[in-house]
Amino acid sequence: MTIHVAQPKKSGVNRRQFIGIAWLGTLVVLGGQVLASLLKFIQPVAASGFGGVVRAGKVDEFAPGSVSLIKTGRFYLYRLENGSFLAMWQKCTHLGCSVPYLEKAKQFECPCHGSVFDRTGVVLGGPAPRPLDTFPVSIKNGEVFVDTGNPAQREKFDPSQTAKV
């Protein structure tokens, strides 16, 4: 009977194991690269159309105290009593439903989960976690422009969110 006992190793890894680990490492790196590029690939590129600067109309078209829906930009333009403009995304901050404006109640009411917002977009009731998002408004040559590419989240209404004529 012969039993050969393996020689004590000099280091923890012998040549065969080292090459195995090198192969494995290479494959992991390769797989990682493939996964990373796949992730990059399925990230959407910037959308066109909605997302650019939308011309809402002439300043005079909007009476103070009125709320108008600008369909091309999917936002509400609220002209405050003092004449300044506030643009709010039509999308409910809860789960993304389009919020209709109720002229009688002078407030926004979401049909999905019953969130209620006042005319400045502040939450009056319902599950919405924050006021309606706003878009930056700029006024040039008596016309109102709204940049729908940059929705801003807010915690409460502040006059700095509006644009004066």
């Binding site: 399925i42 990230q43 959407p44 809860h94 789960l95 993304g96 439903c97 999905c112």
Partner: peptide, 20 residues
Amino acid sequence: TVGTSIASYEPVMGSTVKKI
């Protein structure tokens, strides 16, 4: 719209998952 908005509330990857 409602279903995918739920995904965006996932704190770490939420908005990325929704965008993807």
